[in-house]
Amino acid sequence: MGMAALPRLVLVLVLVVTCAPTLVHAQAELPAVIARFELKRADGSREHLELARCPGRVEHHFVERGYRELWLRDARGELEHVRSFPRDGKSVHYTAGDLRTISLAPDWSALGSLLGASELASLEAKGTERALDKRQARVLLGSLRAQPARLVWLDDVALPAQLSLGRGKSKVVITLLSLSACTPALCSPEKAELRSLEFADLGDMEYDPFVRRFLAQESHGHH
């Protein structure tokens, strides 16, 4: 199952994404892009994350795990969330009501930028440098999640070109590998042939092996 315990690196990223308060990016739509990141740990292990950001839609694809998280926002700002596990042939769908009920209210802009506004604002500007495709980028230093951080930030697309977190054996580096425009086709992809489960129903599906594993994983991850 693709939802096995997320590595620390990805977990940090997800925490930053889902817990950041709304400030800087406001509610304006960010440029539609597909960004491919590499996540590298101090031990040399690597994973890849693809971020597809379109109007009203942000998808995170954890490539090696075959696991996807989709966020949808309607014209009224109501969110829906789908977590897809293709290897299990299942997805879990959270309605806006479900998200409110479990107090999951992520900042839309942070979902599409990997970094929340307050995290960004907490860092100190330390000059500029050239990043991916010789783009102009700002260098910011400081602390994120109680760890030393160095961020190379692309203002034009509101994405990190590189984020270094921690030091020594706990150090992780997230690097933007490629950036491309998100086409209309990519913004409305065909639905995967997954069995869609409603989050609200999971409590009544205690004998389903997938649901049992999902709930066990969730209970471990719950704060």
């Binding site: 009920t101 479990i102 999971l202 409590g203 205690e206 999902f214 994983q217 209970s219 471990h220 719950h222």
Partner: peptide, 16 residues
């Protein structure tokens, strides 16, 4: 608050 989750003794992602 409407969204407050009451405390639970045993950790489970879905209350039973």
């Amino acid at each position: 608050a409407l969204d407050f989750l009451q405390e639970a003794t045993v950790p489970m992602a879905a209350e039973t």
